[in-house]
Design a binder for these strands. Sequence first.
DNA 1: GTAATTCCTAAACCTAACTTTAGCTCAAGA
DNA 2: TCTTGAGCTAAAGTTAGGTTTAGGAATTAC
Lengths: 155, 155
Amino acid sequence: MPQPAGISIGYLAERTGLAVSAIRYYEAQGLVEPWRNAGGQRRFHRADIRRLSFIMIAQQFGFSLPEIRGFLKSLPGSRTPTRDDWARISENFRSHLDQRIETLVKLRDNLDGCIGCGCLSLPNCKLYNPEDRAAQKGQGPRYLMGDRPEAENDP
Amino acid sequence: MPQPAGISIGYLAERTGLAVSAIRYYEAQGLVEPWRNAGGQRRFHRADIRRLSFIMIAQQFGFSLPEIRGFLKSLPGSRTPTRDDWARISENFRSHLDQRIETLVKLRDNLDGCIGCGCLSLPNCKLYNPEDRAAQKGQGPRYLMGDRPEAENDP
DNA sequence: GTAATTCCTAAACCTAACTTTAGCTCAAGA
DNA sequence: TCTTGAGCTAAAGTTAGGTTTAGGAATTAC
């Protein structure tokens, strides 16, 4: 037996709470790889219920679909993932996660010393400090709380 | 003097690191309210540098623009916000923030007991537990980690 | 005074993550 | 068998949060 019977997209949707259209979208993004039955309909592994659930959880943590695809690469596509498979992926996921939480907490703590106080003394403000800014996730240099390091004087 | 000279959008952009187009977009979303000079150009309060910085910080924490508009409603639009104004807004902001971090940490801890272990015993899984699920931020009922509470048996 | 910037508006475009629609086929039950 | 529900594809639409473009008008610099 090359393939077990497999489950339909509708059943998978029902079991995960996802919309059928979302599951098809995930397939297009390479997050699941169903095969087709004789009539051309998608058939999924039972283990894909868990796989999709993982995707939903990771999304709640703010990971993008490409990032999640990265996590899932370490799961076997062809056989049902074992406890060890999940443990391995979890380790990778967990470390990204810890990092994300740490960043948030750090930002919060800086916030307490900065916005909370009215931040009237900018040189003491950590959100304003260049090194701290570099630790943040933004895409370019952003001068937080209103001032650039190099110029306290202006027009 | 009804209005001070005010600063231009380009200078505001330079001071905050935001694009000019982004600032105009924020105005359209009701997050800043510049006035116009004789020639029709936008003029901003100096305090808007801080206001926009707050917006950028709040965005890093994952708040949407409408949520941020909510926070900013407690700041005076007409006069320069005082230390007390910022302290008040910070309190509100901070409590939302703590809640967001708490949710993330809780999810992470559940993750340890669930994905980390391979989650082979679903009844013990907290991510799978209905009450815990309700605490999460999703928009509808979502059956995490592959099973519905009411049905352990299926086709 | 004139040339180079900067700013203006409106509308189009962009990405992520999906949903909706249209038109058609497949599968399951009475 | 026949009908109804489930599935299929491709393309267009949707929301958030912007950016880009086009064609002018205002400011600033020399």
